[in-house]
Design a protein around this nucleic acid. Structure first.
Lengths: 215, 215
DNA sequence: AAGGTACAACGTACGCCGTAAGTTTGTCAA
DNA sequence: TTGACAAACTTACGGCGTACGTTGTACCTT
């Protein structure tokens, strides 16, 4: 008969990423992924150990896209890294939660952690300050992005409908401050200029620098 | 035969919380929950619309425990609120991810958002600053906690084994900074004093106050 | 006391899921 | 030509959420 298609780990992972990007992580099942590749579900197990391995694989693929600048001073390097991570994670909304999940001990995220810690230590931060600085920075990168994605800030169009139907249920007078906030979102407030992500990022970076220099 | 047990929404939700606390959110299935209550799975549908409704219900139950101080100045009120939220979420590690999930439009979290926004507006923050301040604060509360839980900072005992087996695979020389960081975790560094959560929280609160007063 | 009503339990069934185990088939080196 | 190996396929199991139909029972009305 006809030649068998090759199919390898990279192809499987890429197809999985495409599927997750297109239809959400919930739609990524072994059967569906096999279908997408013209193959039965069980055949995928020749290339990934199990579904967890698959999820680890696609997480690593995405995290690997994050910039780790090597030619910049610590503050600029970390800043660019954070923004790059934020961009990458927003582009693949399913990745943040996977990256945070405890069971996933990804190679790439280990490198990333070591890189961040190295930037701080080599910039003259003490071990003590570095300890908290790393927690502060990485939790902001992953945590903020996850929070943002969870609130559906991504697609501006649907927010309008969502807010409209919400305030039909709960009149503005009942939640006046939330109403004001929703209006700001609808008018596209805070776009273009520096968003909350970078705002807090700079709050953290500047705060850390002060702490380092005052010690 | 014998009398039927009463069973109502509150009982179902409480049992679900207990099950999730005990065996993790992954163990919370309708069948298993029914079993726990001495009832078939389908009987639960007399009290919750579907599993999503159940998850919404238990999320609200937990979020409802978070303190919303009404007798304090804005900074202290928000600070206490944040710490209370952090405590509650750490006590129920499954709740953070549910609270962040887009599909869940919980009544309680709406009240919480309006409360936070109200604290800021009534403290003299402009609508513009409040917009970003809210994002900064809430993303820190939920995002940091989720990050922390994801990294398994909760149970200190298991971390030792985890780190040991990790550095058997990857020798310390390969990831020197991460090794140092892991050692700090193992020696219980950063416990007792203010942790990274409050550190960043204060960074944000102080930064916001500066921004308000400089405008 | 008898009958009616409504609710909350039950059992069955369907189509998903991940994956263990066994079987077939295509390809290539000896 | 043959044998080995890898990568596909098939079958099957237990678990999931839940649609649907049935049955038992507590309580209200007459």
């Amino acid at each position: 008969m006809s030649k068998r298609t090759p199919l390898n780990r990279q192809l499987v992972l890429r197809a999985a990423v495409a599927l997750a990007d297109a239809d959400g992580i919930g739609a990524l099942s072994m059967r569906r992924l096999g279908n997408e590749l013209g193959v039965e579900a069980m055949s995928l197990y020749n290339h990934v150990a199990n579904k967890d391995d698959l999820l680890n694989g696609i997480t690593d693929l995405i995290l690997g896209e994050i910039e780790l600048p090597s030619d910049a001073e610590w503050k600029d390097a970390l800043r660019r890294h954070a923004i790059s991570a934020h961009d990458v994670l927003v582009a693949h909304p399913w990745a943040s939660s996977l990256a945070l999940s405890p069971d996933r001990a990804s190679q790439v995220s280990v490198q990333r952690a070591d890189w961040m810690l190295g930037q701080l230590r080599e910039a003259g931060f003490s071990a003590d300050v570095t300890y908290h600085a790393y927690h502060a920075l990485d939790s902001h990168i992953l945590g903020f992005t996850l929070w943002q994605l969870g609130h559906g800030i991504v697609d501006q169009e649907h927010i309008a409908d969502l807010a409209a139907s919400f305030f039909r249920m709960y009149p503005p007078e009942q939640y006046p401050y939330l109403y004001e906030h929703a209006q700001q979102h609808l008018t596209g407030f805070g776009r273009g200029e520096k968003g909350a992500f970078e705002l807090v990022l700079d709050l953290i970076l500047d705060g850390l620098e002060r702490e380092r220099d005052s010690a």
